[in-house]
Amino acid sequence: MLRFLFRRILGSLVILVLLTVVAFLLFFGMPRDPALLMCGKTCTPDALANIHQTLGLDKSIPEQFWIFLQGLVMGRDNFPQGPCPAPCFGYSYHTNEAVWSTLIDRLPLTLSLAFGATILFLLVGLGTGLLAAWKRGTLIDKSFTAGSMVISSMQIYFLGPLALALLVYQAHLFDEPKYTSITDNPAAWFTGLLIPWAVLSTIFAAQYTRMARSAMIEQLQEEHVRTARAKGMSGRYVFFRYAWRGSLIPIITILGIDLSSLLGGAIITEYTFGLPGLGRLAVDSVQFSDLPLLLGVMLFSAAVILLCNIIVDACYALIDPRVRLS
């Protein structure tokens, strides 16, 4: 098990390095010079060369790549803005801020949004899904299934503004979405994110309702579930101990994907509710040809996705002894 995890982490690091290479090549393949953008309207060739030099763009691509990698591991102190401790992604071309601290700055919002929504949609989605499977064929099951169909076909840019218009601006039931740090004011943190959480988790929950229902129904038809009934275990026991355990596998697989995409930055959600998270940072960095920021956001998101994958694999091993003991 530990060996397996170690191997997975090693593999993930290799993937991260490869990703950095690809991102570097793609960036320099762009028909746009970031220095030109910074140089402004009154740009002279001398000024441009100067900027090239400060940014390190005059060096060859492999050289720049090596410097970048070194910075990640050991930090760099050759920046005009000041020293840059490891992990150093450099300073943003656009805002002149250290990339790492920008990421750390935006992270709490993204984490709050992602985990808050996840807890909510898991509770609601799995709860309704299990209930539908338990009451299979009844009115409850049918209405849940139909409801989840309708909701999951909606999009955030439709449901988001709708919720804002109805619940916030018209009925004044909730606060306008706004991020406050949880350490500053937990109540404001909660109320400010309530609407984004609700909207985000509504759409996800609907998917989880259907998924949990179908996974449970499939599991309930398994032979070993029938055996458990044949030895006299109660319906509820069989449902939660035998069928539920098997249903966790597909659910966790999808949860891993959803969670990693939420953590990587829920771009549309952030734009819809005007919240400055990692997603917006990513869009900005592309817009401004901001290489250090772009690399930072990309590597960060990739690391999060790989981490989620490793956690999902570890969960498989926890749930299924066949994975753990083979």
Binding site: T227, A230, G232, G235, G246
Partner: peptide, 26 residues
Amino acid sequence: ESELEKLRGNKVAMIFQDPLTALSPY
């Protein structure tokens, strides 16, 4: 159902064809 539960595995037990799928892997 509750009466049947008391019988199953107690007074009346069953063995199935394929023991690999008939036992829970978990």
